[in-house]
Amino acid sequence: MKFEDKILNLIYSKSEGGYWDFKRSWHVDDGCLLHDIICLANNIENRDCYIIIGIDENNDFEYYSLNDDPNRKNNNELSTFLRDKKFFGGIRPSVSLKTITVEGHEIDVLTIRNDIHTPYFLTEDYTSKKKDIQKPKVVLKQNIYTRINDTNTPINRTADVDKIEYLWRKRFGIHLSVEEKVKLYLSDIENWVYDDERAILYYRMEPMFTIEIKRVDYEEKKCQSKRSEFYDQLMIKKGDGFTWEEFEIKYANIVIYTHWVDYLDGGRYMIAVPQHKIISNKSVRRDEMYGIYYYDNSNLQGLVNKI
């Protein structure tokens, strides 16, 4: 579903929820803006979240003009605003701003990306320095805020312990299935260790996850060397053969995924074999078919290739 359609569906629902929040106008108090962002970054629905600005939820969710809003921010101002806040570990929520037009009205949408760096919280109190705010809100250090259904954790409180536990489990991938953990761990390239003696890689933080290059005997290797694709020619010396071998991703010695690797440049370079598909280009005269090779970095083969 397109981004605009997602936001329209939320607007037309005329209700708030666990991953979206409506605001009539931009926050006067930057502390309130920061609090809202942290709450949604720590959402327990494990998905991208949205702050939709320009919708008056107290007036039957009517549109509200942002044209003369003195507190309106752009992407650069939003990034600068978050950059100097003292977040635990120095990692800040990933937030982007996009303006869409709905029925002639501009709507600002802040997207807070879903990731594994939860819980987000400050190591120093934050209070807006705007002089025209009589009683600025204080975003408290060490307080962990979240959002349950359509309600944020109050700014002077911290989330319930079961919600905090979930957010820490999310950071370490404890809440994931084995298949989901594999994708998470493959993204953490620096923590994979290669054992040359056994021709395996293992994940330093959970060594039961391994990637093993399967040993093949000479006759099998001769058969595999006959496999050749165009990219074999790109990094190879004349007279060298082509070598394909299988690899297996295992957890506790149980195979989760298996595919092929290819050695290039006389064995000095190894890739996970790219995926392949046929696409058509329909022209006036005829249908032209092309084979393309590609990596999708959201799936296992693309992630393995990075390692």
Rank of each mutant, 00 (worst) to 15 (best):
G239E: 04
I211P: 00
R204W: 02
D217A: 04
G241S: 10
T210D: 02
I213K: 01
D196I: 08
M235K: 14
P207K: 09
V216W: 05
K214P: 03
I249E: 00
R227K: 13
V216M: 14
C223S: 03
E248Y: 06
E245H: 07
D217Q: 01
F209T: 07
D232N: 09
W192M: 04
L201E: 01
E212F: 01
L201F: 14
T210S: 01
R198Q: 13
Y202S: 09
D217K: 11
M205C: 08
L201N: 03
Y231S: 01
D217N: 15
F230V: 06
K238D: 08
R227V: 03
Y231T: 11
T243Q: 05
M205E: 11
R215S: 09
R204M: 02
S228M: 11
D240L: 08
T210M: 02
Y203Q: 06
E219A: 11
D196K: 15
Q224W: 04
E212Q: 05
R204K: 08
C223K: 09
Q224R: 07
E206C: 10
V216H: 15
W192L: 10
I200K: 02
K226L: 10
M205N: 14
Y203H: 12
Y194T: 07
V193L: 14
C223T: 10
K250C: 01
E248F: 06
K214T: 13
F242Y: 07
V216F: 10
K238P: 07
G241W: 00
K250V: 00
E245T: 12
C223L: 07
Y203N: 10
L234V: 15
S225N: 02
K222C: 09
Q224E: 12
F230Y: 12
M208P: 00
I211H: 00
V193G: 05
K222W: 08
E219H: 03
Y203P: 14
K226S: 12
F209E: 05
V216I: 13
Y218M: 09
E197D: 12
M235P: 00
G239I: 07
T243N: 02
G241Q: 09
E220S: 14
F230R: 05
E229K: 08
D240F: 07
W192Y: 07
D217H: 05
M235L: 07
L234K: 13
Y231Q: 00
C223I: 06
Q224K: 13
E212Y: 04
Y203C: 02
